[in-house]
C-alpha cells in the first residue's frame, strides 16, 4: 500500500498542471468543448454579437434598422460574456502560479526595442494594459482605435474569431474561410507595417 504522502504529491502535481500555462493541445480541445456545450444548449459560439445586442439594448434600433428587433433573444450571449469576465477573474486570481508561457527570444528583443516590456514574464504588456496606461494619451488613442476597428470589422464581417474562425470553419462555411483570410491580411499588415511605427 502506498503511503498517504504519495497521494498528496499526486494532488500537488495535478494542481501544478492546472496552475501553469496550458499547452495548445489542452487549450484548443477545451475551446472545442465550449463550442460543443453551446451547440447542445441550442446556441452558437460567437462573441461579437454581444456588441450589437448592447447597442440594441441602449435603443440604437429606434433610428437604425440594423439594431431593431428583440435583443432579449440574445440575452444568453450577455450571460456568456458576463461569465467570461468572472472566469477571467477566477483564472487570473486563483488559478495561477505566476508563471507565463515562454515567448520567442527574437520577439522579446524586438518588443523591448519598441519599448514594450514584460514578454515571457507578464501576461500582458504593462505599457498598454497596466493601470497607468489610462493616463497616457497616446496609449488611449491606440486602445480606442483598436476597439473601434474590432467593433466595426466584426459586425461588417458577421463574426469574429469565435463566430467565423471556430464556429464557421467547423461548419465548413465558405464566408468564414474568407473572413479568416481577412483577419490575417489585417493582422499581418498591423503587426509588420503599422505597429513598429505607432507603438
Amino acid at each position: 500500500m502506498l503511503h498517504y504522502s504519495h497521494y498528496i504529491w499526486e494532488i500537488y502535481l495535478t494542481m501544478d498542471l492546472i496552475l501553469a500555462t496550458w499547452p495548445w493541445y489542452v487549450g484548443g480541445p477545451a475551446i472545442a468543448v465550449v463550442l460543443f456545450l453551446l451547440l447542445f444548449s441550442e446556441k452558437r459560439f460567437g462573441m461579437s454579437t454581444n456588441l450589437k445586442t448592447m447597442c440594441s439594448m441602449a435603443g440604437a434600433g429606434k433610428k437604425i434598422p440594423f439594431f431593431a428587433g428583440d435583443w432579449k433573444a440574445n440575452r444568453w450571449g450577455l450571460l456568456v460574456a458576463l461569465g467570461a469576465a468572472v472566469g477571467g477573474f477566477i483564472a487570473a486570481t486563483y488559478m495561477t502560479n505566476g508563471s507565463v508561457g515562454m515567448i520567442h527570444p527574437d520577439v522579446v528583443t524586438e518588443l523591448n526595442q519598441m519599448g514594450i516590456s514584460g514578454a515571457g514574464v507578464e501576461f500582458m504588456p504593462p505599457e498598454l494594459f497596466g493601470i497607468e496606461a489610462l493616463t497616457q494619451p497616446k496609449t488611449l488613442v491606440l486602445l480606442a482605435l483598436g476597439g473601434f476597428l474590432i467593433g466595426f470589422g466584426t459586425r461588417y464581417a458577421g463574426g469574429c474569431t469565435s463566430g467565423h474562425a471556430i464556429s464557421g470553419l467547423s461548419d465548413l462555411q465558405w464566408p468564414s474561410f474568407v473572413a479568416v483570410i481577412g483577419f490575417f491580411v489585417g493582422g499581418l499588415l498591423m503587426n509588420h507595417l503599422i505597429l513598429p511605427y505607432i507603438l
Binding site: 474590432i150 461588417y156 479568416v180
Partner: peptide
Amino acid sequence: GGSIFGLG
C-alpha cells in the same frame, strides 16, 4: 470586415 477586425 475581416481585414478591419484583423487590424484591431
